[in-house]
Design a protein around this nucleic acid. Sequence first.
DNA 1: CTGTAAATGTTATAATGTTACAAATTTTGC
DNA 2: GCAAAATTTGTAACATTATAACATTTACAG
Lengths: 163, 163
Amino acid sequence: MSARAIPYRPHNHDACVSQALTDARAICQKQNARLTPIRERVLELIWQSHKPLGAYDVLGELSSDGHNAAPPTVYRALDFLQQHGLVHRIASLNAFIGCTHAGENHTGMFLICRACGNVLELTAPDVSTEVCKAASEEGFRAETTTLEIAGLCPRCQAESGHD
Amino acid sequence: MSARAIPYRPHNHDACVSQALTDARAICQKQNARLTPIRERVLELIWQSHKPLGAYDVLGELSSDGHNAAPPTVYRALDFLQQHGLVHRIASLNAFIGCTHAGENHTGMFLICRACGNVLELTAPDVSTEVCKAASEEGFRAETTTLEIAGLCPRCQAESGHD
DNA sequence: CTGTAAATGTTATAATGTTACAAATTTTGC
DNA sequence: GCAAAATTTGTAACATTATAACATTTACAG
């Protein structure tokens, strides 16, 4: 590998957030979908770091905003964002993360660091190819793939025991 | 593909169950682990079909047995069975399924039919290879992989719309 | 036996997610 | 513009999944 991926090196995270919001506005406009204030705010909260956020964490942040929210508010916003490819749900964590390939047609693969919690989303065409091949060898028609890899990111490997 | 995999064709399911139990006993003996009556019963319940079973479904069955069980009983048994590679948890369904490769060192890949609910566990070395490659290109040390494919199994494709 | 560790029982509670219906807002057809 | 329709949001209650904490029982080693 050459340079480390974004979550694994210092970066101006505000740029991540504003890029995500800008992309989201464009995507919603193109799809004639309404990125309402609540939905945009939830997206912004999800993007506050590269660690996935639980629905109830989002709810808590909304409450801190002074917004009088209940679970359905958050789940509805998250559903909307998922449907438009703006966030992903990480099944193994029951949590949500901003999509870094919004707009592209992709099958996400997530590298989840068990130490720092950061998640990197990859597009791995070779993996998708092999998955489809394996599925079709069984006569199975694959529709949606959940692919989540837990382990140690480069930074946390360096910190914990130099092996 | 030649013949359909077990879950997708008629078969003597009792044989699946007794094979699983026999294997489990052998594996536990080898590992000096205690396959107590509760644990064995939970394994048997998990194996009652090729559809994943929720923890509370197991709990319900135990109660029907006349066994006075509470959630921790089930979760503890399931933890034990997972740790010894006898069942898998399907993260996208919050449910558990018997392992068809018990004893082998493997990364499970699950084909989950959204119509009939049956799950086929595959060992897909080529997929694992590509996953490891993609992870290490990012400097990530992969430890555990969650790979779940939802879609339509051969039988359900045949039934719903012939395309 | 007896002391220790492992397993199980029991109660309560935490965390995650959904249903159902009411109210408000936005869009659409006229 | 304006009323009807559709979408979005508010609200309360509830369903599902999972864990914590501590008591009791059972298995095993000396």
